[in-house]
Design a protein around this nucleic acid. Structure first.
Lengths: 209, 209, 209, 209
DNA sequence: TATGAATGAGGATTCATTCAT
DNA sequence: TATGAATGAATCCTCATTCAT
């Protein structure tokens, strides 16, 4: 029935509304610093209403993480479907990740900083699994391109899993360093400059001369 | 006067005592999770006494950070005084940092995760400045070796500040990724394996063939 | 009009439906622990619908109490109509009450445990009065049998109102004691054993030798 | 040292202060209805201070229970040490219990009504055990007198554990019935009248003619 | 210098009840 | 009549910091 559909649509819209508000608040304050009260206010809802859509603060956070990874995965798929060689595709993947870091730097910082106890009781298994599956997917995609490239003799032979961990860690770590106000005062290069540098460095050094 | 000296010595000892305890507690629980109560208990002091030596929880934390960087700087100096070429010295610096990550992984994680508001009121300017100065020093040391190496034609020409940020960020980022329980489930390599890989990778790719 | 009747019938049916669900939920969780949400779900109705039939959670509870007493009164009437002497009838009344305690132990526990503020605003006068009237009725029935028995010289002469209060209190009190988990660990006899014992004890001691 | 002793004394006094306040609040509102805030206010302390002395609301409650049973046990000992026959001693025990019901009717009502989940995390094992042990002690005392009396041929032979459960249940149950405002309107006898009646009834019927 | 008792603001979560549709 | 989304008051507990002794 039309009513049911509308309800479902509205429900989804409200969830999105909360998620939108949450992304901002989490980005500003981090997970610990954010309060459900503030998220609700920002979503123009009551505190109670938020709990109609999400089981807990943790579930809100994880849902956002999920949608963020979804966003990345989607763009990554496009990058992988590019015509062009493996090198171009690998570069495209890096660019997608860099784009993500540029788009949601604060929220990704919040993710990296998130510390939590047992989520079993706080978070629906579905949301949790969704995040884990998507992250695995990202790793797998990167791994595949890398190994293909090595097999074809385009890339220098390295331990692929280590290499991927290094790359992701490097981008994340730089994000964190440069976002930290204390670090900022020491930094001699802007985030963008460092990201560009890293992109070039990893690509150049990976290619067989 | 002798008394004064003794007093000063005792005060320093007490501070050290608190710092020692704090390092453990912060490492286990992170900044938010740690309580002054627990730090005091572990230092075998009363809560009130802790506040005789430190203005706030934040100041304790920052003091620890300071002493950690001190520790690094000290070892770095030794590495830099090594006879041997610039390459060996650069490698030694990396090893010192890796050693630090292995020695205090949890505490460094806590540092990386630290999110704070305005420290002006919470922290004495002296402590704050000390940390910043020391961190700058570390950067400067790395920068110098790197630039010397490039000038001598040993290292490939890269943007040194970016390179340093990348390296430090990479090690930090990998630490964080691999410590995160969610990430751990995806990780295919151990922390040590990845650190070794990174050491080799950065050294190899930096050297002029 | 037929429609009106049907409406009335349906309304009664719905109320019964809610009451049925409520009895289970209150029995499991007690008054405080039960939620209107759960009652509604169990009655396959929406929360809002429940409030069409009952003014408040308290009114649901009181209605259940009323229907429980109704149930008892009905059975008590049958017991009283038994041919057989006053002794048999008194015994039958006890058995009816014991039967009730066995049938709805948890719900009766919930009734006994119910603590509430002012009901005036929460409960319709009608429901409230109904419960009081019915409870009075039960008392009156017991009282009559007892007094008749004493007049006929079958029962020992005792203060009938006190005796009745004692008996009802005793059964209720034992129910409560034996349902309490802490008490259970101390109890040496099962509920049924104690009920049987009490039935015998009261009957035996009441009878003139 | 004097200071230490004073501290200990003051600590005990404060605990007692909280307990005193708590007894009143719990008596008025029951366990669920009482708030820690109100208890604290009544004890002229801050909310936080209450938690210096008690781990949780549950622990406050259980501590009160404990002290109540202590009070009873103490008086029961005196009753048992009375010269006079077993009958007098049994009567004295009943009187002690009746005295308790008269002294703390509301609080004992709160105990009887207390419903709780798992206490393991909320309550110190010591407090918990203390209550259980004391309650067992009360049961054992009653049991012993009763069995002694039966052995000596003073009391009618009955199943002692059932009898005790019945008696305690009866007094508790009557307390509950007569305290309930709804029940009160139906009651034809006062609490005291019923207690007296029960005392006589149980004693009379227990004695061998 | 040291103690530890006291404070009180702060926050996640629940749930009876209302109301627009 | 029926729905279920929305509300918001209510409550337990934590912990950094202060202060009388």
């Amino acid at each position: 029935m039309g009513t049911k559909e509308r309800r479902a649509r509205e429900k989804a819209a409200r969830k999105e509304q909360v998620l939108q508000a949450a992304r901002e608040v989490f980005a500003w304050k981090g997970f610990e610093g954010a309060t459900v009260e503030e998220i609700a206010a920002r979503a123009e809802l009551s505190k109670g209403a938020v709990y109609l859509y999400f089981r807990s603060k943790e579930e809100i956070f994880l849902s956002m993480w999920r949608s963020t990874v979804d966003f990345f995965v989607e763009q990554a798929e496009q990058a992988l479907n590019l015509t062009g060689g493996l090198v171009a595709r690998f570069a495209a993947l890096l660019d997608v990740y860099i784009g993500l870091l540029r788009l949601y730097p604060d929220f990704i910082e919040a993710i990296l900083n998130w510390k939590h106890g047992d989520l079993k009781e706080k978070v629906s298994a579905e949301t949790y699994e969704a995040v884990v599956v998507r992250c695995l997917h990202v790793h797998a995609s990167l791994l595949k391109v890398l190994e293909d490239g090595m097999r074809e003799g385009l890339f220098r032979r390295v331990d692929a899993p280590s290499f991927i961990t290094m790359i992701l860690g490097a981008f994340n770590g730089v994000l964190l360093m440069l976002k930290n106000p204390e670090h900022q005062k020491m930094a001699l290069r802007s985030q963008d400059e460092v990201y560009s540098f890293m992109r070039d460095y990893f690509l150049t050094t990976l290619l067989v001369k």
